[in-house]
Design a protein around this nucleic acid. Structure first.
Lengths: 186, 186
DNA sequence: TTCATTTTTTATCATTTGTTAAATTATTTC
DNA sequence: GAAATAATTTAACAAATGATAAAAAATGAA
């Protein structure tokens, strides 16, 4: 997936602003298993996924995956990006990845200089917010089995590309529970 | 809580932009019990709470409260605001309220004209996003009793101002379960 | 292919949360 | 303040999910 498509898909930018943003982006690749981002560190970049699959997770006694990112999506440590503070999450590459890298510092400059890019940044946060809000509500309304069916419906490819342990923790249940749910659906 | 404090607290605005925003805001009051916003309707305003307390909820067979707003906070139907589509939530006033009203249409104009206001809007969405993300993670990590303790710690005043049925549904459990949890904590 | 390792499933029992109904306590209205 | 109404707690049982362990299946490496 091309960088201009990714940027434009978030919010339609005038050509000059799009070019300005693209000028600050560089390409980089990492192998499967690479830890792109460690917890408790301020991350100074954001990334757009050209190709591949990643997960964001938090480690305590257990390890909880709370986000998957695939082609076209943005990898961002919200705490770093918004508050310049260390984030709680780590990012692991689940497949070999081709990424576009953008320095947060440069993006901030563009936010202050270009009203279109500022609105692009606003739209990005707003869309992420709606997605997160919908997940929260889904968690409040639905039991584990309903949430699994919802995920199968909305993101069938994830089930194929990601191992069940990660899916289970994303759904907020144990792997054993997910296995049981799958067995009951047969 | 004064409107300039509320606006400024989200993101420090230059005086001229602050005035510009304030010029589009009017005051309005509603009594306790008033339904400010109905589900499945495009809401054309956003509100800032000068005084009072509200909740956002969704109705299905049961009724689930997923947000409380108090002094200084912003009442917004994200679906309406971001996508111009009917929202799923209703907003009920839990106390008599004094609100500041701002037409989404006017705000959108300002976003396109004033880079500071665009960044103000960006910061607003980003901060809401972090709050929502933290709630989602709390839901994924903690059991009901831990979530109740967390709420008591972070928002002790809510427990006093809101009846337990609403608190319970906010926490994602039944009122009976919350009662049991409270009994066990004694 | 074969062996070793990892992932997924199955089974059993424990714990948490849900459901329903009734009892108690608090609040509102007259 | 008394009666009516609403909110909260308690109790008993049901359902969902967690924890642990072992078996089965899938994957990867030599």
């Amino acid at each position: 997936m091309d960088i201009s498509n990714i940027l434009d898909h978030i919010y339609k930018l005038p050509e000059s602003s799009l070019v300005e943003l693209q000028n600050n982006v560089s390409e980089i690749t990492f192998p499967k298993g690479h830890i792109l981002l460690k917890a408790n560190k301020v991350e100074t970049n954001i990334y757009f996924i050209k190709k591949g699959l990643v997960r964001a997770y938090i480690e305590r006694d257990n390890e909880v995956t709370f986000w998957f990112g695939k082609e076209g999506e943005t990898i961002i440590s919200m705490k770093s990006y918004v508050e310049d503070q260390p984030g709680y999450e780590a990012i692991e590459l689940l497949e070999d990845c081709e990424l576009y890298e953008l320095k947060t510092e440069n993006l901030r400059k563009l936010f202050n200089e270009d009203v279109h890019i500022a609105n692009w940044g606003r739209k990005f946060a707003e869309k992420e917010l709606i997605k997160t809000e919908e997940r929260l509500i889904s968690k409040q309304f639905k039991n584990a089995s309903e949430r699994y069916l919802e995920l199968m419906k909305d993101h069938p490819e994830l089930i194929k590309r990601v191992q069940l342990g990660h899916i289970a923790s994303y759904l907020g249940i144990t792997q054993v529970s997910l296995s049981r749910i799958r067995a009951e659906l047969k």
